[in-house]
Design a binder for these strands. Structure first.
Lengths: 195, 195
DNA sequence: AAATCATATGACCACCTGGTCATATTGTCA
DNA sequence: TGACAATATGACCAGGTGGTCATATGATTT
């Protein structure tokens, strides 16, 4: 977490640093993002950065936390009883909605998919855990075949959703259609069909 | 393509360069691979490298071509009439087989999935084209629902297969099981079910 | 042997990275 | 005002990158 010196900064300066970091992390994945670039964008001296944050990971976690708050406000709440499939579509729509208001946020998310650093792996594992829970819950509810490997499903969807976003550019319609197609296929594949 | 000076080299020297490149490309994705490291591994001067190849892309394409020849010999031939699903499973088994004889080859393949450079995008597009054809053919044969977006299917599988390989480490059993699970799900999702 | 051409070589270039640290500046309290 | 602590600063470091090029060596031809 950021050091005290950072929290003591003026709101304006904190925002400048936040914005600079967001910009950099939305262009380059975490592993490739440059601290030099961030301090240049933020207009702060290099030495000051290390006065505020321990290192790049420290900064990233802070940024991720702040983004999560913003995103939470942008995305409309979803009925917690929604099925896994509904949840995924909702998430994709959320990505698009966020992408409209904060294009960088969605890009930062998408770039996680092509970062295989140990740091990112841990982060993603934690982040996907709640979706695994939803799948397991839907198995209990008889919505998803019990023999399905939830880990495989999550990975397929997570990886696809973000890869597709990464490469769709700004064509949101195409993106949502792709995701819906993918979800439809997986739904057919894992749902319990009532005859 | 490599310059004449490269082709004029002794077999031994060519092999040394090939091996060094394979080693580097199996550790770092194309974008991150270091020419400096390659010339060091190969024991050739930096200047000589540029005597042989125009740049890193030139080298990569050469390596990919040579690898393709080797792989073709390792993987047992598949009945060209095999369904798309059989083809994918066959490919995954091929990846494992290659991984046993030439572990670096499979790693190089897997690393393509986390490289979003323009160069790699073009390469993958070309490489996935033949699978798209197979899907389209299977639609004609009544094996796959005609409304399915073959592009989406290919991406889902390609991305999953290589991501999974990247993170499965050396656990081949787990890897093949994951792929089979994924293929099964997608098969359920896109196949025409005969009742 | 001399001249010509192909190739080999590594020092060098500009530019980047993450990180450090002595020094300068500012704020706070006595 | 003086003393002390907190913070700001950017020059600097070691190590990396892709790429160049003058020079040296070797092979061929005249």
């Amino acid at each position: 977490m950021p050091k005290d010196t950072f929290h003591n900064l003026s709101k304006e300066k904190k925002k400048r640093i936040f914005d600079a970091a967001v910009q950099e992390f939305s262009i380059r994945r975490f592993s490739d993002a440059s601290i030099n670039q961030i301090v240049k964008n933020a207009g702060i001296p290099k030495g000051s950065f290390y006065q505020y944050f321990a290192d790049k990971e420290d900064l990233y976690l802070y940024i991720a936390g702040e983004m999560a708050k913003d995103i939470h406000e942008i995305i409309e709440p979803l009925n917690p009883d929604a099925s896994f499939f509904e949840t995924v579509i909702h998430r994709a729509k959320g990505t698009v909605a966020v992408g409209k208001m904060r294009p960088e946020y969605s890009k930062i998310g998408a770039l996680t998919v092509i970062d295989n650093s140990e740091f990112m792996l841990q982060l993603l594992k934690a982040s996907n855990a709640k979706y695994i829970e939803i799948i397991e819950r839907d198995k209990q509810r008889g919505l998803i075949k019990p023999e399905i490997d939830s880990d495989v499903v999550i990975k397929m969807i997570y990886i696809f959703v973000f890869n597709e976003y990464l490469y769709s550019g700004s064509d949101e319609t195409r993106y949502l259609k792709s995701v819906e197609n993918a979800v439809q296929i997986i739904k057919e594949g894992i749902a319990v069909h009532q005859d």
